[in-house]
Amino acid sequence: MLVFSAQYFVQFDSIFNLFSYLTFRAIVSFFTALFISLLIGKSLIAWLQQLQIRQVIRNNGPELHSSKRGTPTMGGLMILLSIIISVLMWTCLSNPYVWCVLFVLIGYGIIGLIDDYRKVVHNNSNGLMARWKYFWQSVIALAVAYTMFSLNPNTIATQLVIPFVKDIMPQLGLWYVLLTYFVIVGTSNAVNLTDGLDGLAIMPAVFVAAGLALVAWATGNIHFSRYLHIPYLYFAGELVVVCTAIVGAGLGFLWFNTYPALVFMGDVGALALGGALGTIAVLLRQELLLFIMGGSFVVETLSVILQVIFFQLRQKRLFLMAPIHHHYELKGWPEPRVIVRFWIISLMLVLMGLTTLKMRSM
C-alpha cells in the first residue's frame, strides 16, 4: 500500500526513495508488526477474558497443566492482525507470492478460529472434526499448489533444491502439486502439535521465519542466487518483508505468551503460522531446507506418529506421553527448561540449514 503511494510521491521528494529499498521495508515491517502486537495485546487479552474465551485442557494431558485452565486462548488473532497489517503496508501488492502467503495465512487462520471456537463453546478439547479440518486445509493447499504450477509449469520455479548438492535440481512436474500440498498441510499441523507449552511453538517459528527471510533475500537477488547455486526467482524478494513481519508479530506475541503465559496462541495462530511458513518454503523452492530448519516441529510430529505405531504393535508406550515435550515434563523437567532447550535446538537447526546453502557455493 505505502509502496504504491511512494512511487507517486517520489517525483516530489527523494526521501520516498527509501520505500523502494527492500532492506528498509523489511526492517520497518518487523517493527510495525512488533508494535501492533504489543499495542493490541493487552486489550485483546482483556476482551478474550470478558468473552470467557478460555483454554480447554485435554483430559489425557499432564496433570501439571491443570493450572493453565482458564487462561485466555485465540491469542493467535494478535499475530495474524499484526502480520496482515504490516504486510499490506510494506509489500508490493502486485506480487503474487505475497498473496499466496496471505491466502494461506488467512484461510488456515479461519479454520483454526472455528476449531478454537468449538472447543470453547462445547467445553472440550475436540473442536472441529479432524476430517473437516484436514479437508479445508487440503482445499486451500491444493488451490495454492495448482495455481502456482499453472503459472510456472515445468520451469525453475518447480524444481527441487537439494541441500548439499548444487548440480542436481530435478524437475518435479505435477509432483510439485503433491509436494506443495504435503509441505503446507504438514507444517501447519506440525506447528500446531508443538504448541503445547508456553512459548514453545512461537520462538522456533520466529527462528525459521528469520532464516527464510535470509533465503528469500538471496533467492530474489540474481547475483547471490547464482553464487549459492539456488534458483533465482523474481518475486521472491518481497517474501523478506513477509518473513520479518512474522518475526515481529511472533516476538510481540511472546511478550504475553512467555512462561507463565497470559494468553495462548490457539489453533487460529498455530495452524496459520505453520501454513504460512510452509507456503514460503515452497515458493522459495526450499522444502528440504525447511525440514532441517524446522527440525523441532518434525521431531514433535514424529514422536506422535511413533507413539501410535509402537502402541499398536507392542501395546506399550514408546514415550511417557506424546508429543515429546510432554515426555520430558513427565520425566521431571520444569516447563521453562523444556521450552528454552527446544529454543536452543531450534536456533541450532536454523543455523545448520543456512550453512547447507553456503556449502552449495563450494
Rank of each mutant, 00 (worst) to 15 (best):
S20N: 13
I27Q: 02
I27F: 12
S29F: 02
F30C: 03
T32R: 05
L34D: 04
I36E: 03
I40D: 10
A46C: 04
Q49A: 09
L51R: 15
I53W: 01
N60L: 07
G61C: 10
G70S: 13
M74V: 03
I79S: 00
L80V: 07
I84V: 15
I85F: 10
T91I: 05
C92F: 07
C100V: 06
V101M: 08
L102Q: 10
D116Q: 07
D116H: 06
Y117D: 08
V120E: 07
L128T: 02
A130Y: 12
A143E: 03
T147Y: 14
T147E: 09
M148S: 09
S150C: 09
A157R: 11
Q159E: 12
I162H: 01
M169R: 08
L174R: 02
L178D: 03
A213Y: 01
A213V: 13
I230M: 09
G237P: 06
L239N: 05
T244D: 01
A249I: 04
G252N: 08
F256H: 15
V263A: 01
A272D: 02
L290G: 05
V304E: 07
F310P: 06
L313D: 06
Q315N: 15
I324N: 06
H327N: 14
P336E: 10
V338E: 14
I345D: 05
L347N: 08
M348Y: 10
